[in-house]
Design a protein around this nucleic acid. Structure first.
Lengths: 221, 221
DNA sequence: GCCAGTATTTGAACACGTTCAACTTCGGGA
DNA sequence: TCCCGAAGTTGAACGTGTTCAAATACTGGC
């Protein structure tokens, strides 16, 4: 590891530590720099803004999520426990940073931010998250129309983003309300997906797939 | 109008003007105060933060939306053109502030912000928006299960919030992509709602209503 | 070893949102 | 009319994220 890589790693480590203990606002760039043993300007040499430090934090959460999911993906075959398990692992992994997450989320929601959930900068993490959902689908017993199945990982990722949105606003202790949402909503989603085989519903499902396809490249592109 | 009301109105007018011309970030509190002919501290006497000024901006958009909807509500009976019309009026009304909207949207997504779509501060506007959706449902020919019908205004408001989310990211000229989304998605929603009368689907709809009811008081309450 | 050019590092300086102690104006009861 | 508490107003001061010209360390060619 080169010297500059060490400096970069030290800044990320300092930021992560301070974010976890004090939250986003209370963590100043001056404090991060001091903790990392560098100057303020140096931190900006490696990270364009305070937001970019958050992206590194998000990557850590995703890596932990992926690792935590392996057990679920190896053992669960049925779609409902498989998807529920994956979402619950995320809740476990993210719990310790919930307070901080609210601050993080506003950056994820700002279209012009490099940290936007749809931004090119966050594309690698986003695509890895969608790939995880593809594993959820492929390894399950779920039977849906092929056209829908193809778009399902993206749709499930959007479902996960919906859960995260709910979670961010959830101040119940231990995030029990979000957990309740997951346990209730996943079986409903399962029913809904299987219902696409009912003649009167299949046409609607096809419409949804068509709509998603026509918009999948992003609103503004 | 009392003196203090005049001062408050002057600050709102100054903020609105500067927001429209220069956007959110470029509009400083010092500039707002100067434009309104008051001191910086005085602006904070009336508005707790810069974000609270945006709330006043929201209210202006909603008032224009409500007014613009009267024609649609008076003439359209069928659910699809009725809801489509209401959403399109919103797009018309909001178009001029699209650039500005992207900048402040991050505040609307932050749970702790007074601008959050679920915050107590925005409750009056939010409830008025839901009431508008109730008028859309009540005056239409839509037939759904009574249990679902009761929650429908809230669900339609959530749909509208989804549209706004898409709209914020939409940089196509004239927001054609969001308009395309509305024209495609509303008929699908209509089909989906009417499909709740199919035996195999009704049970799912009931599940959704139960879920929404159990969560309707908000994630954290 | 030496130099030129690049990469890295520094911290003072800037503009911002926000706070607050002090000041001024207002309203209504004696 | 006078007075006092409340309401309204002020602008300097604070801590923040970010910038930048300058200083320093590094690297490859000779």
């Amino acid at each position: 590891m080169s010297k500059s890589e060490q400096t970069r790693a030290a800044i990320v480590a300092a930021a992560t530590k301070l974010f976890r203990t004090g939250g986003y606002d209370a963590t100043t760039m001056r404090a991060v720099a001091k903790e990392a043993g560098v100057s303020v300007g140096n931190a900006y040499y490696y990270f364009g803004s305070k937001e970019h430090l958050v992206l590194a934090f998000y990557d850590e959460i995703f890596a932990a999520h992926l690792e935590g999911c392996e057990g679920v993906l190896a053992t669960e075959q049925a779609f409902v426990p498989r998807l529920t398990g994956v979402l619950e692992v995320w809740l476990d992994v993210a719990e310790s940073s919930h307070e901080f997450a609210g601050k993080f989320f506003k950056h994820a929601a700002e279209p012009t931010s490099p940290l936007s959930v749809f931004s090119p900068e966050s594309a690698p993490t986003r695509e890895a998250a969608i790939a995880l959902m593809r594993r959820v689908v492929d390894g399950s017993d779920l039977k849906v129309a092929p056209a829908l199945r193809q778009e399902l990982p993206l749709l499930l990722w959007l479902v996960q983003m919906g859960m995260v949105l709910f979670w961010v606003y959830d101040d119940s202790s231990g995030r029990t309300r979000t957990r309740q949402l997951v346990r209730q909503a996943v079986p409903i989603l399962d029913k809904l997906l299987r219902a696409t085989r009912i003649p009167g519903v299949r046409g609607i499902a096809d419409d949804v797939v068509t709509l998603v396809r026509s918009l999948v490249s992003g609103p503004g592109r």
